[in-house]
Simulated scan of single mutants.
Amino acid sequence: MGLLDHVDLELLNALADDHRATVVALADRLGLSRNTVQARMAKLERSEVFLSFERAMSPKALGLPIEAMISITVHQADLPRITAELAELPEVLQVHGLSGQIDLLARVAARDTQHLFEVDARILSIEGVERTETSLVMGEVIGYRVRPLLESVRAESLRPESAPRSS
């Protein structure tokens, strides 16, 4: 099944239920020793199972209520430098590299539409950026989640192997 075994999946499920759970609480819940849970957590961390441990904060709370997605088309040879320059813009929250006609998709935050216009202009001024297209975020309809995927993988791991077909 890959790098995760049944115990790893149960540990991830417990963390999905309570992402602030302590190692001791996880050990109690799963019936494992504290050392086992700590070792498993360290293994999962080394295997890059966990994304950022940075606390997610609302840009609204920081005075930036406008969010937008900016599609960016770039000169391919300049992609690494452009990405580095985008990382220097504080309003850029996240950037994904894409296949297809759009090269990068940036999630940005702004104080108001004028500020958003200025952020877009700074992105366009980066040498090698050919074009941008900005879409305002009207609301989040499905937030980042892994619970359904985790449950699907757990269910699949618990299924008995298919019986060999007879000829």
Rank of each mutant, 00 (worst) to 15 (best):
A121I: 10
R81H: 13
S166P: 13
D18T: 06
P148V: 07
L3P: 03
L93C: 02
T134D: 13
T113G: 13
G63T: 02
R34L: 11
P148N: 13
R55Q: 07
L3F: 05
L149H: 08
L136D: 12
D103V: 00
A27H: 07
L3W: 02
E118Q: 11
S47Q: 14
E45Y: 05
R147F: 06
S167C: 04
G139F: 03
A56W: 11
Y144D: 15
R147C: 11
E156L: 09
L79R: 14
V92I: 09
L32Q: 09
V24G: 13
E67M: 12
S58G: 09
E140R: 02
S58P: 02
E67N: 12
A39V: 05
A163Y: 12
Q114V: 12
V129G: 00
R159F: 04
E151D: 10
D18A: 09
V49A: 02
T36S: 12
R81Q: 13
L150E: 07
V49L: 05
S157G: 03
L32T: 00
H6V: 11
I126W: 02
V146I: 10
F53P: 14
E156K: 05
G2Q: 08
D18N: 15
D120T: 08
Q101I: 15
M57F: 07
V153R: 12
G100D: 04
S166W: 11
S167R: 15
N35A: 15
S157I: 04
D5P: 09
E127W: 05
D120W: 00
A68N: 05
L105R: 03
Q101L: 15
D8W: 06
V95S: 05
D78R: 12
Y144H: 13
E48Y: 09
R145A: 12
P65Y: 01
L15W: 09
M1K: 07
S58K: 07
K60E: 07
R81T: 14
G31R: 04
V146H: 05
A39I: 10
R111P: 02
V95I: 08
V7D: 15
D78Y: 06
I102P: 03
L44Y: 03
E85Y: 00
S47L: 14
A163C: 12
G143L: 00
A87Y: 01
G2R: 05
A109T: 00
F50L: 07
E118M: 03
R131I: 04
R122H: 06
T132V: 15
A109C: 03
L9K: 08
S167K: 15
G128Y: 06
S152R: 14
P65W: 00
M1G: 15
S162E: 13
A121V: 07
L93D: 08
V95H: 04
L116S: 14
D28W: 05
G143F: 06
E127C: 12
E10P: 11
D5M: 06
